Amino acid sequence: MASEPFLIGDAMTGGYGPVDILHQCTIAVEKGQIAVIVGPNGAGKSTAMKAVFGMLKLRGGAVRLNGEDITKLSPQDRVAKGMAFVPQTHNIFTTMTVEENLEMGAFLRRDDIKTTIEQVYELFPILKTKRRQPAGELSGGQRQQVAVGRALMTQPSVLMLDEPTAGVSPIVMDELFDRIIEVARTGISILMVEQNARQALNIADKGYVLVQGRNAFTDTGEALMANPDVRRTFLGG
């Protein structure tokens, strides 16, 4: 039997109250790869991410990390297992400095965090320049860098990003995607929801197109970009 992906939300069914938003939805990512979830508004993309991270109780299906069933674990316990989640909004402490934000990311750690802070500054040099500045004074793109940097402070094996390029300029988006590729090259698995479907599929090893909480298309990013149905319906031709 082929080995299972490093992280998988397998045949997930669930939602809020009595209403199911996800219907037998499967999302997975391999070690050190980038998996992207795209689809129209209201397709259940963010809900699928929350389900994988334990913020949504499943009525069916399971979540497994490195072969271990973590379906019943709380988000905090999943962080301890090596998962990090960056929500789309409210993802930084605006009144704290950049460096204080990074230090807050390491709250579970009992070892020396200086090396990890330096690694974040290498990845995002602008943050080193602004490390004493309140994070709330930064531009949208820089705030996203702080949010991703803070998540990396936990030394995760999986980094989950919900709309990391929302509201940033195309130049900043390209730069963020470049950094995300760099993070994946270190062996961290990246699972992200992205509105900019074409650009996201360009960097994706695996892509998931969701429609109404169901898997509509699943393939490599390259294959989805080349699929005429996907192009016509989701990528504007």
Rank of each mutant, 00 (worst) to 15 (best):
M1G: 11
S3G: 03
E4C: 13
P5A: 02
L7C: 09
G14Q: 01
P18R: 15
V19R: 06
L22A: 10
C25G: 03
G42F: 12
G42S: 12
T47G: 05
K50N: 14
K50Y: 11
A51P: 09
V52N: 03
L58E: 01
G60N: 06
G61K: 14
G61A: 07
A62T: 15
G67K: 13
T71L: 02
K72M: 08
K72P: 00
S74D: 10
P75W: 12
P75M: 11
A80C: 09
A80S: 11
Q88M: 04
Q88K: 09
T89S: 11
T89G: 08
M96K: 09
T97Y: 14
V98L: 13
E99C: 12
E100R: 14
E100F: 01
N101S: 09
E103L: 14
E103Y: 14
A106Q: 12
L108M: 07
R109I: 14
R110G: 08
K114E: 01
T115Q: 07
T115C: 00
I117M: 14
V120E: 07
F124A: 03
F124V: 03
K128I: 01
K130Y: 09
Q133W: 06
P134M: 15
P134C: 08
L138F: 10
G140W: 06
G141S: 15
Q145G: 10
R150Y: 10
R150C: 08
T154D: 06
S157W: 05
S157D: 13
V158I: 13
A166H: 04
G167V: 11
V168S: 03
P170C: 09
I171N: 06
I171P: 01
I171L: 15
I171K: 12
I180K: 10
I181E: 09
E182Q: 15
V183I: 15
G187P: 10
G187I: 04
I188C: 14
I188G: 04
I190K: 04
L191H: 07
E194R: 02
A197D: 07
L201E: 04
G207M: 05
L210P: 00
V211P: 00
Q212K: 11
G213K: 03
A216G: 01
A216P: 00
T218K: 04
T220L: 10
L224K: 02
A226H: 14
N227P: 00
P228H: 06
D229Y: 01
T233M: 00
G237T: 01
